[in-house]
């Protein structure tokens, strides 16, 4: 039986070693998966393979049974990614960047129109509020924002996309502790903030194991291999420790 997103026999080589090896991962609808591992364990590579921005050297990734490279734009839009380096368009304002999330559902004239001014749709304002930014920021160029504010804009853009699956690469690293909770709550507990639908399924990489409590499933990655993949309740402290220990 196929899940929503299936990674089969994934291998990513690097120089004379591996960044990922023998990855089997199947993500099912409604699962909230935490991806744990030390830095350099291959978390970002796994996410890049999962969203199709990095072609694995071998193995297959498929979305609802269709291989990623055959997806059309609409299907591709169902996978939302929150990038570690955010990837905002620096020259644009906050509202323009948030609206990029809706771009896949619009034509190119709208893309052009978006460049010419501030389009304040209800969706855009909702996303902005959801990440705790004030409306005054709408017209601010993102290059004038602080690190935390930029991260919020990236999250707002992702919300705007209304994807089915969320792939997030260290989305909490720049946020202050109170906001970490809020964002996690948003992704893990909420179905929607009218009129925005929140992705029902997610794979979020984390560097802090203490945040996994509200997830349903947890995957541990070490030196490019999955060393455990289980329900959060079944996870033992020993397994967590082994992730961060050498050898």
């Amino acid at each position: 039986m196929t899940g929503l997103l299936d990674l089969k026999d994934i291998e990513v080589r690097e120089n004379n070693g591996y960044r990922l090896k023998d990855i089997q991962l199947s993500i099912n609808v409604g699962e909230k998966i935490a991806l744990l591992g030390r830095s350099g364990a291959g978390k970002s590579t796994l996410i890049a393979v999962a969203n199709g921005s990095l072609k694995p050297n071998s193995g297959k990734v498929s979305w609802r049974g269709i291989e990623l490279k055959f997806l059309n734009n609409r299907q591709r839009n169902e996978i939302g990614t929150l990038w570690q380096d955010l990837r905002l368009v620096e020259e644009l304002t906050v509202s323009q960047n948030i609206n990029i999330g809706a771009l896949a559902k619009k034509n190119f004239l709208w893309a052009f129109y978006n460049l010419l001014g501030t389009i304040k749709t209800k969706e855009c304002l909702t996303c902005l509020q959801a990440v705790g930014l004030d409306n005054v920021f709408l017209t601010t160029p993102v290059q004038e924002l602080s690190g935390g504010q930029r991260q919020r804009v990236a999250i707002a853009r992702l919300l705007m996309q209304q994807a089915e699956l969320l792939l997030a690469d260290e989305p909490l690293s720049n946020l202050d502790p109170t906001l970490v909770d809020e964002v996690l709550k948003l992704f893990l507990n909420k179905r929607s903030i009218d009129p925005i639908n929140i992705p029902k399924t997610c794979l979020i990489s984390l560097h802090r194991p203490d945040l996994i409590t509200n997830f349903t499933r947890v995957v541990g990655l070490k030196r490019g291999r999955i060393i455990f993949d289980c329900q959060v309740a079944e996870l033992t402290p020993l397994e967590i420790n082994s992730l961060y220990k050498d050898r």
């Binding site: 734009n73 299907q75 591709r76 368009v89 771009l103 896949a104 052009f112």
Partner: peptide, 22 residues
């Protein structure tokens, strides 16, 4: 940013307009 936008299913022309023009 351009790769990210294209990856989220935005069509070619909108991607170029949004990420390259500014």
């Amino acid at each position: 940013a351009l790769i990210a936008i294209r990856n989220s299913g935005v069509n070619h022309i909108s991607t170029l307009i949004t990420a390259l023009l500014p």
